[in-house]
């Protein structure tokens, strides 16, 4: 399959890229990173941009840097980079773990964190990790830089607040203060490997058997990854036992955000089972 014809340009740096994006308002310019979401869409003619702007040479979008209290991950970081980078593995083991579950080795060698977030596929793995780790998306445009949460960035399936003149440059994550536990548990679709459900949980462990700052995120179903706030409340500052974990999983069903075409009993059961299993895995690590 071939894509529709397009013009191809390589951006040399971020200013060059922003200039290309603002140069001609009539033409649809799409940013090409790893291409593993965009090119399949273009081959199916579901996307037909006039101009492809290849940003793989833009150094400002690359690399992992530590700042006081924060870790900054360039938007061009590939899944394979996230799984191998010792800084990421140390500070954000959840992100490494999630990246390692994405698709297969060949795809992880190309696909990027920024590309996944901008594609905003409701079945992607990365958004759940970004939400659970309280990441901030750094968006640069002609009017400067803005920072937002994943919830603010992704509006609906395949739709973000990114303006045509803007680029997602990086994601910043707060470095957890104190010991943090995290887990990602996913049920991959047997053919596609996309999560049917993916549950990401992070929590601080002030004392054994207790959790605080619990964030429970459900991804892979519904229109976008979401936090299960009521489920978190049943766990925060409570004495943990297998019974409280089971109750928390029941609560997760009551606040499930399923898509319109969901098989409600099946997907509810999946949420309960995967939230409970994920909590057990987390609890096993903290008790």
């Amino acid at each position: 399959m071939r894509t529709a014809p397009f013009e191809y340009h390589r951006a040399h740096d971020i200013d060059d890229a922003l200039e290309w994006l603002t140069r001609d308002g009539d033409r649809e310019v799409k940013i090409l990173a790893g291409g593993h979401s965009l090119l399949p869409l273009m081959k199916l003619k579901l996307a037909t941009p006039t101009v492809l702007l290849d940003v793989q040479g833009v150094s400002e979008l690359k690399g992992v840097t530590m700042e006081p209290g924060w870790i900054r991950i360039g938007a061009l970081s590939r899944y394979v980079d996230l799984t191998r980078d010792p800084t990421v593995a140390e500070a954000l083991p959840l992100l490494s773990q999630v990246a390692a579950t994405v698709a297969d080795m060949q795809v992880r060698n190309r696909g990027t964190i920024g590309g996944s977030l901008c594609h905003a596929d409701p079945q992607a793995d990365i958004p759940a990790a970004v939400l659970a780790l309280d990441g901030r998306l750094i968006v640069v445009g002609p009017r400067g830089e803005r920072r937002m949460t994943l919830d603010e960035f992704i509006v609906a399936p395949f739709l973000t607040v990114l303006e045509p003149t803007e680029i997602l440059s990086a994601v910043e994550f707060p470095i957890p203060s104190g010991p943090q536990q995290s887990v990602y548990l996913k049920r991959p679709h047997p053919a596609s490997g996309y999560p049917i459900v993916g549950v990401a949980i992070t929590a601080n462990v002030p004392t054994p058997g207790h959790l605080s700052n619990v964030r429970v995120v459900v991804g892979g179903m519904g229109s976008k990854a979401y936090r299960a706030y009521a489920t978190e409340s049943t766990l925060n500052e409570k004495e943990l036992s297998p019974e409280t974990l089971r109750q928390a999983a029941e609560v997760a069903i009551t606040e499930a955000q399923l898509s319109d075409d969901a098989d409600v009993p099946y997907h509810s059961q999946l949420i309960r089972t995967y939230v409970e299993r994920a909590l057990h895995r987390l609890y096993g690590g903290v008790a």
């Binding site: 291409g35 492809l52 394979v80 060949q106």
Partner: peptide, 15 residues
């Protein structure tokens, strides 16, 4: 040196 699916890469990306 990295394994990649060549149906999902543009030749121009390999400059």
């Amino acid at each position: 040196g990295e394994a990649v699916k060549s149906c999902t890469v543009l030749a121009v990306q390999c400059m």
